[in-house]
Every structure is written in C-alpha cells, then in structure tokens.
C-alpha cells in the first residue's frame, strides 16, 4: 500500500513538472537608431523583451555589450547602435539570455516627380516645355518617430546648378513650371537634426525653346520667348543711353531692329518657332555689347 501511494506521489509530481511551461521570450526586438554624427548625439534606438513560462515573476537585465552599461527594465530606449544582451530570470532562478543588435538608419532623400507633361524614361523624365511638375517628398528615415521633436530640413531646387553652394529651400510639396527646354536636375537635400544628410537629384529633359546659354550670350542680357502672345521679353542689367537690338534669322536676314531704353521691354515678334540670332549694340557708339542665339 505504501509503495502504491509513493507511486501516485511520483506520478503527480512528474505531471506537475511536465505541465510547467519552459521560460521563454514572447517578445524580443529592437527599434533602429537614427543616424548621428557625433558621440554626444543620441540615435534614440530601443530594445524590448517580454518573458513567459517558468515561474513568474521575472526580472530583466539589459546590457550594452560595448560599454557594459545596464538597464533593469524590459524596455530600454535612447540607445545608439550596438549589441545588447537581455537576461531574464524567473522566480525560480531560471535564466534566459539573448543578444539583440540595434542598427542605424541613415536618411534616404527621395521625391516623386508627378506631371502630365512628362514621361518617365530610363535616365529620368522627358517632355516638352512648358511643363508643370509636382514634387512629392517621399524621403525615408529622416525623423525618428520615437522623437516627436525630430526636425528634418529639406532643401530643394528644381533647377539645381552644379557647384552651387547650397540649395534654395522649398516646402515638402512644391509645384514648379519649367518654361523652357533643356536638361534640368531637380535636387533635394535632407538634413536631419543630428546633421546627417542625403541628396538625390532627378533629371528632367524638356524639348522646346531654350534659355540662352552662358556661352552664347552676354550676362547683361536675357531674352525670353513668349510665342503665345507673339512677343519676346528683353531684360538688360545696364541701360545708359539706350541699346539697339537686332534679331536675325539663322540665314542672316535681319527681321527685327529696335531701340530699347528700359531694363525690361516687350517686343512684338512674329517669327515662326526656331532659333534666332540677336545682337545688342550701345546706341551712341554702336559698340557690340552682347550677342547670341535664342530659341523661339
């Protein structure tokens, strides 16, 4: 009888031990830190863990494997990239360890080019001027959602110039009209509050009348075609005693000659679309002060 009772006791104890769940993690992970430049800056990454099984309650200890720094809670925030080890201990003294890596996210500048006037092509977008384009900011990892005050600045320039010192600032969503033909680089720079940057440029090619290239014009003079109103607009930086403008066909035929006494002038122009040659003379001395071509 005694042996029978002992057998029951061992069986009950065994069943109890068998039904107890093993200590395990039910939640274990990390949120990436965001890019930073200096050591004093914080990437604001985080790690988190939650245990089950074993014998509750549980104690948690996170350790930064690079610095030895520890945290005694299940979630640890304000972290920089690195490896972190979690050790959870249940009420019975059983322990469980795992190592988690917090990686770093660099900002990725990006924007969509949306326009009925453009077609996407391998190297960018192609269309005919004038073209109206909406730029939609689709950048990633520029602001940590865990940091509400994270403030990223976006600099944008629809016609970026090579060697320019910086970009003109634009709102995140901007509609811009390209009035002339040519190749344009629309560029965006994302600058995070930690000083990390990323730049993206997209090429937009437009057929149509060109602005005057620097190589074929005086910096003092700008001719803008307005074929819809059969006019050309002439802007001059310096007008003393008036200038004389002459416009020729490519064949050399003089088709327009006008004296201009103001910095801005609108001249009627009935030529067909195409390239024309212009010459500017100082009125008194008839000295040539600028020449080039423009596309009408």
């Amino acid at each position: 009888m005694k042996q029978l009772l002992l057998s029951f006791f061992y069986l009950f104890t065994g069943l109890t031990t068998f039904s107890q769940e093993e200590l395990r993690f039910v939640e274990l992970g990390s949120e990436s830190a965001y890019c930073r430049i200096y050591d004093y800056q914080n990437g604001n990454g985080s790690v988190y863990a939650s245990a089950s099984g074993g014998v509750p309650d549980y104690s948690y200890q996170w350790e930064n494997l690079s610095t030895g720094e520890t945290s005694m809670s299940s979630t640890w925030g304000g972290l920089n990239p690195g490896d972190y080890r979690i050790t959870v201990t249940d009420n019975d003294g059983n322990t469980l360890s795992e190592t988690i890596t917090v990686d770093s996210l660099n900002p990725i500048a990006n924007f969509d080019v949306i326009s009925d006037d453009l077609d996407p092509i391998e190297w960018g977008y192609i269309g005919t001027a004038p073209a109206t384009v909406t730029f939609v900011n689709t950048s990633l990892y520029f602001a940590n959602p865990l940091v509400p005050i994270a403030d990223t600045i976006f600099y944008f320039q629809p016609e970026a110039t090579e060697g320019g010192t910086f970009y003109e600032s634009y709102p995140l969503l901007e509609t811009y009209t390209y009035n002339y033909g040519g190749e344009f680089d629309a560029c965006m720079v994302a600058l995070t509050d930690n000083g990390c940057t990323d730049t993206i440029c997209k090429t937009i090619g437009l057929f149509g009348p060109l602005t005057i290239g620097e190589e074929s014009s005086s910096n003092l003079i700008t001719i803008t075609s307005q074929p819809n109103s059969n006019q050309i607009s002439i802007k001059q930086a310096d007008v003393k005693n008036g200038n004389l403008v002459k416009i020729y066909r490519l064949t050399g035929q003089l088709i327009l000659q006008e004296e201009i006494y103001s910095n801005t002038a609108l001249l009627p122009f009935t030529g067909t679309r195409g390239i024309y040659i212009f010459e500017f003379y100082e009125n008194d001395s008839m000295q040539l002060i600028g020449s080039g071509k423009f596309n009408y």
Partner: peptide, 13 residues
C-alpha cells in the same frame, strides 16, 4: 522652310 525646327537632343532623345 520657316517651319523647320532644328534637331534638339536631350540626353538620348
């Protein structure tokens, strides 16, 4: 002939 528009090339187009 005034309708002629000289060839304009943008990258590959």
């Amino acid at each position: 002939d005034e309708g002629d528009i000289p060839a304009q090339t943008i990258m590959t187009e």
